[in-house]
């Protein structure tokens, strides 16, 4: 589910459209923090795609927590 990038960052391997998987991860993640409303992309409120600590990459995102 995660790969380690060249920079040592944890990148999600499911890309930008795996809505169910990232909702599941975030629901079980103590680090989840909702991002600013304008930066939310998932319809599930609790989702890595809506988390303050995800930073978008070309194909997916890295978790910076």
């Amino acid at each position: 589910m995660w790969s380690i990038s060249d920079k040592g960052e944890r990148e999600f391997t499911g890309g930008k459209e795996d809505w169910a998987a990232v909702a599941h991860i975030a629901e079980n993640c103590p680090g989840f923090k909702p991002d600013d409303e304008d930066e939310m992309v998932a319809d599930e409120a609790v989702s890595c795609y809506n988390c303050r600590y995800r930073r978008w990459t070309i194909k997916s995102f890295v978790c910076c927590k």
Partner: peptide, 18 residues
Amino acid sequence: TRHQLLLHPDIPYTSHNS
């Protein structure tokens, strides 16, 4: 309005690059 810019590993954006 919010405008999305390029997401690229070489761009040192702080959080969203928007």
